[in-house]
């Protein structure tokens, strides 16, 4: 019965303070929008960075006529390294086939290949992908120390590309760190704004809280409606924000896909819509209830 009274009181106050309720919901929407935007942004950045990292690899070329078994043995050994994600073997024949396919519209190159006759100018290769761009130097050192048959210093392309790879992995790392820092800061500010708004809404009710106490209401009976109202603010704001993100995700997705074909934001948003909404909903409700509780606390000390 008490619960019912609290719910009724909350709904009544929510309705009668129409403008205040609307304004509070809008500010909370702003907060949730910032947090949701940061969430999606981090998904996109992560996808882009992962894609970039995937493009980095070390190619080890084996000199002509190296025994295939010894190459495969080297492959197995490299695969056991903890930092290695994947090793692919491309035999000389495959390399040639790939080469022909890539240049099938280039008669000059095809002609020069014909001139060579049966001889294959391309080496067999092991392509090594690392779990993390930072691990490449370790892998390269390992390869060098092993001195596999048919591998010369210049056969390991890492040393040619070292500077580029290092710089790229440095960029990836700092973008991630900076992004996380900025996101946290922005989220913190947004939460503070929502908290202050709710406090302001409750400040207008401080006299009422005082009266309720003098009439003999318990603290929970006074607090209850404010908490329910905060929950209402939070959930309405969360749902509205989630809906608002639909057109934005579609629009942004087109732009991002044009730049990075591997990243499909719209698809991600669609498959994760419920998770996304649930996160916003949980955030909104927690923010609403906790802010209300903290704000009411000050005026309950009578």
């Amino acid at each position: 019965m008490t619960l019912k009274r609290i719910l009724v009181a909350a709904w009544r106050s929510f309705r009668r303070n129409g403008w205040l309720s609307t304004a509070t919901i809008l500010v909370m929407m702003l907060t949730l929008f910032v947090i949701g935007g940061l969430l999606l942004m981090s998904v996109v950045t992560n996808a882009v960075l992962t894609e970039l990292e995937r493009k980095i690899d070390i190619a080890v070329e084996f000199e002509q006529g190296t025994n295939e078994n010894s190459i495969l043995a080297a492959k197995r050994e490299i695969e056991t390294l903890a930092d290695v994600e994947e090793v692919t073997y491309i035999s000389a024949d495959e390399a040639l086939a790939n080469f022909r396919e890539r240049h099938q519209n280039d008669p000059d190159i095809l002609a020069s290949l014909e001139e060579l006759g049966d001889e294959n100018p391309l080496p067999a290769t092991l392509n090594i992908k690392a779990k993390n761009a930072r691990n490449f130097s370790g892998i390269a050192e390992f390869l060098q120390s092993k001195n596999y048959p048919g591998v010369c210093d210049t056969c390991i392309n890492y040393f040619e590309n070292q500077k580029v790879i290092d710089r790229l992995s440095e960029i990836v790392r700092s973008v991630r760190a900076f992004g996380a820092g900025t996101a946290l800061l922005l989220a913190f500010i947004a939460v503070l704004v929502a908290f202050t708004t709710i406090r302001l809404a409750i400040y207008t009710a401080r006299e009422e809280i005082n009266i309720m106490k003098l009439v003999g209401a318990t603290n929970w009976y006074i607090r209850g409606p404010f908490m329910v109202e905060g929950m209402l603010y939070g959930s309405i704001a969360a749902l509205a924000t989630a809906v608002l993100f639909f057109p934005i995700a579609w629009f942004a997705s087109g732009k991002i896909t044009a730049l990075m074909p591997e990243v499909n934001l719209a698809e991600y948003f669609q498959t994760h819509f419920f998770e996304f909404t649930a996160i916003l909903l949980a955030l909104g409700i927690i923010l609403g209830i906790v802010s209300s509780m903290i704000a009411v606390r000050r005026y309950l000390r009578v």
Binding site: R5, R12, S13, R16, N17, A205, E207, E208, N210, I211, M212, K213, L214, V215, G216, A217, T218, Y221
Partner: peptide, 29 residues
Amino acid sequence: RRRVGMIFQDYKLLVGKTVYENVAFAMEA
């Protein structure tokens, strides 16, 4: 406080509630 009723110079009514609700509130609480 339920055993001691109080009235004040400035009435101290709940402005967001009707006359009926103001009186009922003390009982609900």
